[in-house]
């Protein structure tokens, strides 16, 4: 008896399945015709990282060249260049090392934290190799001054790997310039 009951239940479930797909069949599309339409809900999209500028100076990033992101990145796709004002080249001995006492595996930060060092550093270049990035977001999490954010860049297409090696500082400046231009217009 149970076998028959089970079978009848199974047959009923088939009808329920047909009802589900039949209902979906009659409802409108939920996809978007990409080249002609674009989606509007990109706020939550986590693309490659971008630098965050000072609110008062959109050309200047918040970054303090602490290199935490460079250290923490598991893919090693971030390269930072910076200098201390007055010095021509950055002195490796005077690098600002904010990484905790327990170094990450493979981390170069073996020195204890030097919190008294309040030297200002200027960011010269922030290169991101997006080909290697795994979008883990550790850099954004570990940034002490919230200078990193995810961009909403969805429509990425390129002809070579070079197209995805970004200079984020340059991107920031270009963004600021185009915003200025828009304002002027």
């Amino acid at each position: 008896m149970t076998t028959i009951q089970k079978t009848l239940k199974g047959l009923w479930s088939l009808i329920v399945g047909l009802k589900v797909t039949g209902k979906e069949f009659c409802r409108p599309w939920i996809t978007v015709h990409y080249p002609r339409q674009e989606v509007s809900n990109l706020d939550s999209y986590r693309g490659h990282i971008d630098l965050v500028p000072f609110p008062e100076d959109p050309r200047k990033p918040l970054c303090i060249v602490c290199r935490r992101c460079e250290e923490v990145c598991p893919s090693g796709c971030i390269r930072i260049e910076g200098h201390v004002p007055g010095e021509e080249k950055e002195n490796p001995a005077r690098r600002l090392l904010l990484i905790s006492d327990v170094p990450l595996p493979g981390s170069a930060a073996r020195e204890p934290v030097c919190s008294a060092d309040k030297t200002l550093r200027v960011l010269d270049g922030f290169s991101l190799n997006y080909n290697l990035c795994s979008l883990c977001g550790l850099c954004v999490q570990s940034c002490p001054v919230s200078s990193l954010t995810f961009s909403g860049d969805v429509y990425l297409a390129g002809r070579s790997r070079k197209d995805f090696e970004y200079d984020l500082l340059q991107r920031l400046r270009m963004r600021a310039d185009s915003a200025n231009l828009r304002e002027a217009v």
Binding site: E24, R27, P28, W29
Partner: peptide, 13 residues
């Protein structure tokens, strides 16, 4: 088209 509509997409377009 049926496959597309069941999956709420336009199918060949």
């Amino acid at each position: 088209k049926v496959a597309g509509f069941v999956q709420r997409r336009p199918g060949p377009y």
